[in-house]
């Protein structure tokens, strides 16, 4: 009985959590593209104006980023200004929660068919590498190991701390700007 009453609250909490993480990731993707050369090199292969979306099917939370050119991203929030070029779609909110709460690696989620790719698969692979690098930076090593297939061998603590701080500061500043606007 109690479980049945709590179920809607748990669903709502899960939904809010996924929305929040999408916001953090969107802002963090913009931030990391401004400071990390590896991410910029990966992103440069994307066409200018390329719109990438990550969303929960059928009409759930989403994050949209645009490649502005030269490896830089802009976070558009949850609404795309025009049809997206690449969409990675979680089949269900439960699957998004598994990945975004680091209970299932992104690569495992792909292998488990939790997600669909609509668009160029090569770009999807590239965006997954960028997301992995972001997670390796912003998550504590223990958590990052649960999120990515292989923790980068060449990512050492000083670089990780420095970049994580810069990313989080930029994310905070972007959040602050959004709230003020």
């Amino acid at each position: 009985m109690l479980a049945r009453r709590l179920q809607p609250m748990a669903s709502q909490a899960r939904r809010l959590y996924v929305e929040l993480i999408f916001q953090v990731m969107g802002n963090a993707l913009q931030a990391i593209s401004e400071i990390d050369e590896d991410v910029q090199n990966e992103a440069r292969a994307l066409p200018e104006g390329f719109l990438f979306e990550m969303m929960v099917m059928p009409h759930g939370a989403s994050l949209v980023i645009e490649h502005l050119g030269n490896g830089r991203f802009r976070y558009h929030g949850s609404e795309a200004p025009r049809p997206v070029n690449l969409s990675i779609q979680f089949k269900h909110i439960a699957h998004a929660f598994l990945v975004l709460s680091f209970q299932e690696k992104t690569s495992v989620a792909f292998a488990n068919d939790r997600m669909l790719v609509d668009g160029d698969i090569g770009y999807a692979v590239r965006m997954t590498r960028i997301l992995n690098r972001l997670e390796a930076f912003i998550l504590p090593r223990l958590l990052a190991r649960r999120a990515v297939k292989e923790y980068p061998r060449n990512l050492h603590l000083p670089e990780k701390l420095l970049n994580a701080t810069r990313i989080y500061l930029k994310v905070a500043s972007q959040f602050f700007d959004t709230v003020r606007a």
């Binding site: 090569g122 770009y123 692979v125 992995n132 297939k149 292989e150």
Partner: peptide, 13 residues
């Protein structure tokens, strides 16, 4: 090869 979809399912990154 790095942009090929198959690489996603390789057990090593």
């Amino acid at each position: 090869a790095l942009d090929d979809g198959s690489i996603m399912f390789n057990p090593r990154e």
